[in-house]
């Protein structure tokens, strides 16, 4: 007989993380906890108010931005890109969304013993090509080799240096009620492309990563309006995590309109099949900008003239909300919360 008259409790141990889990690198909540409990208190100055994608320093009369990013994507080559392109574009983008004009990059390589020289050659050649196309040279670097099994083929870390010429101040805590949210194009392609490559799944129309350097697009946007409050590139954790960071830091609410968020049919279909929320899937060439409403059309028009902003759209607005929630008006007219990614979704996505 079932013991259905007893109070039902679920006996489970309460867990604390004694070791680092894959989820700590997800770009979502777990990673923010790791930053807040380990890296921030130990490494960063206490007076640093918010964490932007790059740090800005006053050196002489200049405002200089510096950022760094490590790339561990698996597989090294995927439809639409490779680790070399990500390593260049990712760091350029972190500078760009901080309002900085990228000047140069450094690159550090961790190589696993046994990595075929041909593979290394073609990936480094791809880096060079990407950097040349972006007009941002790689000026210094470092190489380390570890025993077979101590790393997986190739990890790359790039650091970027830029100057901030922008008259306004871009900061993740600067969004204000009444502002609008602009996105530069279709979301979730990178995460889906890498996942499909990894799982050996194919669709009739291949999904390509959206990896791209956004600095020239950002330059157009900054030139169009001095009232851009903040920008984020929506990488790990997707659009949802980028917007939650803005809502939380700026103490505002954000409402998105699902039917205005561009997404390719293939990507949408893949997300349905795999049970992924596209708002949580990584991008490598997408940015969100919070812009003063009066300047929104001006910024949007300039973005649409740029190849990386052709599908740019106003996807939502900023409002007062003491709970700092990101809400989504769904395609069928329902309303729901868009949370930050929790746990691990796809390890080693970039």
């Amino acid at each position: 007989m079932s013991d259905i008259n007893q109070p039902w409790t679920c006996p489970v141990p309460s867990l604390r993380h004694k070791t680092v889990l894959l989820g700590h690198g997800s770009g979502g909540k777990l990673m923010h906890q790791l930053i807040d409990t380990v890296f921030r208190p130990l490494l960063l100055p206490a007076e640093l108010p918010v964490l932007n994608d790059a740090a800005t320093l006053e050196i002489g009369d200049s405002r200089v931005a510096i950022t760094t990013d490590a790339f561990v994507v698996s597989p090294l080559v995927f439809p639409g890109g490779d680790i070399g392109q990500l390593a260049v574009n990712g760091t350029i983008n972190d500078l760009a969304v901080s309002g900085a004009r990228p000047l140069c990059l450094s690159a550090a390589f961790i190589l696993e013993e046994g990595l075929p020289m041909d593979a290394l050659w073609s990936l480094v050649a791809s880096m060079r090509q990407t950097a040349e196309a972006a007009g941002v040279p790689i000026v210094t670097g470092d190489t380390k080799v570890v025993n077979r099994g101590s790393a997986d083929q190739l990890f790359i870390t790039t650091t970027g240096l830029g100057v901030v010429d922008y008259a306004g101040v871009l900061s993740v805590d600067a969004a204000q009620p009444g502002d609008v949210v602009i996105l530069n194009g279709a979301i979730a392609a990178h995460g889906v492309a890498v996942l499909l490559a990894r799982e050996d799944m194919e669709f009739a129309h291949p999904v390509l990563s959206d990896t791209a350097a956004l600095h020239t697009l950002v330059a157009e946007m900054l030139d169009a309006s001095p009232h851009i409050r903040c920008m984020r590139d929506a990488t790990r954790g997707g659009l949802a995590s980028a917007l939650n960071e803005i809502a939380e830091s700026s103490h505002v609410g954000i409402t998105l309109y699902e039917e205005r968020i561009p997404i390719q049919d293939e990507v949408r279909g893949a997300c349905e099949i795999l049970g992924l929320d596209p708002l949580h899937v990584a991008n490598e060439g997408k940015l969100v900008a919070v812009v003063a409403r009066d300047d929104a059309e001006k910024v949007l028009a300039r973005m649409r003239e740029h190849p990386l902003g052709r599908d740019a759209a106003i996807i939502g607005e900023v409002s007062e909300d003491a709970r700092h929630l990101v809400l989504l008006r769904t395609e069928i007219g329902g309303l729901r919360v868009v949370g930050m990614l929790s746990g691990e979704q796809l390890p080693r996505i970039c």
Binding site: W8, T9, C10, P11, P13
Partner: peptide, 15 residues
Amino acid sequence: SPRLTQECICGNIMA
């Protein structure tokens, strides 16, 4: 030493 909690009401929620 599993630290069991009796506060979780998953059972009631699923019921």
